[in-house]
Design a protein around this nucleic acid. Structure first.
Lengths: 132, 132
DNA sequence: CACCATTATCGTTAATCGACGATTAACGAA
DNA sequence: TTCGTTAATCGTCGATTAACGATAATGGTG
């Protein structure tokens, strides 16, 4: 799959994730409870099953639904283990989003830009005038 | 807007973005059209206004709504310029999400893990047994 | 002033999301 | 086999989202 590389300029990267793909990953992360689940899985050194339910202030069925969303997006995988299910992160699914965001950060950094301003490239070229 | 402050502290790096904050950024990116807008803004070396509307196969009002969402999240800023509006990216707003995702990638990378498997840390410690 | 181009907002509709309790399914253990 | 534990699924509800056309607002120009 896609390998983590730091010096990738967005355009010249071999395969670029589609808009739909990136949006799907972002959507899976677009809820505080799911971010919390990811953080929990990241912080634990061992597998956790229903502990997730106890950590979040949500009903079991709600947590299960959030886990389903994360699993569908490939961010989380679960292995059956006795009565519980062992959840863990699947970093691979996040790679395209990491790459996408990192590319943005790097492009802006390499251009030494203050952000939020109009016409960044024109500004960095001291050609700050009308933006047409 | 309600602010929940149940801060599940995991590792005290400087300041960690809240679950709500990260989810909000992800949510703003959680639509193909908005990803496309970000890409457009990233690829153009000059300001674009209504060109965005023409690039996306969506009605003007719909594009305006997507831009509003991105602006609300701070990802895009717009400067009025004659009849048009000059949109550009504000990388700062994405920093916390970039950091969050990069931290995940680095943690897994540093542990030399294959992902998607149960008990990554236990496995990397050759202690592959029951996950309790 | 009226005109024009551009963007924002309004109002509506269908679809999706998020939450919950209740129920079902798996499966090891007694 | 039955029991107990755990997770997934179902059904429902209110809230939110996404899309559109129509309309309003902005602001420079003739």
């Amino acid at each position: 799959m896609v390998v983590f590389s730091l010096n990738t300029i967005q355009k010249s990267t071999a395969e670029q994730a589609s808009n739909e793909e990136l949006a799907a990953i972002a959507k899976a992360l677009a809820h505080p409870a799911r971010i919390q689940i990811v953080r929990l899985l990241l912080s634990r050194s061992s597998c956790i099953g229903g502990e997730i339910t106890h950590e979040l202030a949500l009903a079991q069925s709600t947590v299960s639904e959030h886990l389903r969303i994360l699993k569908t997006a490939g961010i989380v995988v679960g292995e059956i283990e006795h009565p519980r299910i062992c959840y863990s992160l699947s970093i691979q699914s996040l790679q395209s989003l990491i790459q996408f965001l990192s590319a943005i950060g790097q492009q802006y950094q390499s251009e030494n830009l203050t952000d939020g301003l109009c016409c960044p490239l024109q500004k960095s070229a001291e050609q700050f005038g009308s933006c047409s």
